[in-house]
Design a protein around this nucleic acid. Sequence first.
RNA 1: UCCCCAGUAGCUCAGUUGGCAGAGCAGAUGGCUGUUAACCAUCGGGUCCGCGGUUCGAGUCCGUGCUGGGGAGCCA
Length: 460
Amino acid sequence: MKRKKIFKLLQTEAPIDKLLIQGWVRTRRDSKGFSFIEVNDGSCLKNLQVVANESLDNYSEIKKLTTGSAVAIHGKLVESKGGGQEWEIQAENIEIVDLAPESYPLQKKRHSDEFLRTIAHLRPRTNKYGATFRIRSEISYAIHKFFRDRGFRYIHTPIITGSDCEGAGELFKVTALDLDHLPKKDDRTDFQQDFFGKEANLTVSGQLSAEMFALALGDVYTFGPTFRAENSNTRRHAAEFWMVEPEMAFCDNDGNMDLGEELVKYLTTYALEECGDDIELFAKWVDKNLMATLENTATSEYIRLPYREAVKILMKSGQMFEYEVDFGKDLQTEHERYLTELYFKKPVIVYDYPNVIKPFYMRINDDQETVAAMDVLVPNIGEIIGGSQREERLEILEARMDEMGMDKAPYWWYLDARRYGSVPHSGFGLGFERLLMLITGINNIRDVIPFPRTPSSIEF
RNA sequence: UCCCCAGUAGCUCAGUUGGCAGAGCAGAUGGCUGUUAACCAUCGGGUCCGCGGUUCGAGUCCGUGCUGGGGAGCCA
């Protein structure tokens, strides 16, 4: 017999005569003549109560069932005689698949997030982390649905790259060389003898590749892992994270901002509509303001604020900032928080940043000192999206690279795109984990990643 | 990388001016009951993070290292 998922059983409207469920014991309560077993199979937050009568031939074994044990239960679904649940299973046969010994670390009470990180292989068996990773899965699907419904194509950009792309942050090197005996040439490592014949790294962004495909397929997106070797020790950073990067041909920065706002709203709404039970858990136990935050994110009109205006607001704020606010200086976390949490109290899209603080590929505006960049900032999390219109004019792009002292040779193909049928195009990167933090109210990125990678931490 | 905080039973934590190491939960045993993080009783359980120092005496004070957390920078 094929097992029934508890998620489906809880939705049924009539008793079922014969069925099988398989899952793990969350808790057991004994009564005179029978025992109540709460079984969870991971298909949803809720457990299903199983009633085991003492007439079962292995009843003495059943009474020893511990939290964490695996069971397979044949029986019938009946209306519950007790309060608290609509349905329960009257067991006809209980197979103890594996009995968890008393060393099983998860208990029937709340554990700290810090402790659960040390047992990341078991934490998805808790209510909170089960819910987290079901939501992660649902939102992944929603991302594909959002783009597919709008005619975007999904592109698999390379994980291993040959150049450090946009110079964004520290890179993880990829090599097949024997690190104890590196081949040398002129006192430096000779990467000509390495697997690819040149230096290789893990990707920090799929953007440059995605641009090439936007200029062929029109609207495209990537959704995959990204790696940064920065020694960042914060609740918002990980060395390995997932990024969503749409790229659109014939699209300016206004269209870019429209898409970013639409995407965040769509995914927030999707979570509210499709992950109700799991979201409810977070609203109850993790973040009391979660529902208000999600409603605000899903329905309010995001503020569109030129960087120049942002600077003016911050200067007039009367706030004591640790870092000075001035045109040409990047907005600090404290500035972003002031704008989103105190001044506007909702998501803010800051655009048209000074070119001196932004990368080479962003399109120079007519004022010659700003670029068509845009960051979507949300309360509590900060930057959730960073993007721009790309510089499509070959001469201007080359001049910018020269100005910044970049070697243009490795970018020959990127520049080629500006030689042949170049068009205005735009795109952005959405931090997937930061979005999940927004949706769940979880305040540490390590808790929305199955097995997180951070400095000095790669257990599991 | 910088600043701050913490580390005591399996888990969450208390431990007073330096003076015999504690509670709740979990576990084991027994009881009770259509139970709901069930309930009641009994029992077992410690490298007080490591190393060094001060002291008659250190969980407590000092130094140092490690681990974890928070904030900042970098960024998504």
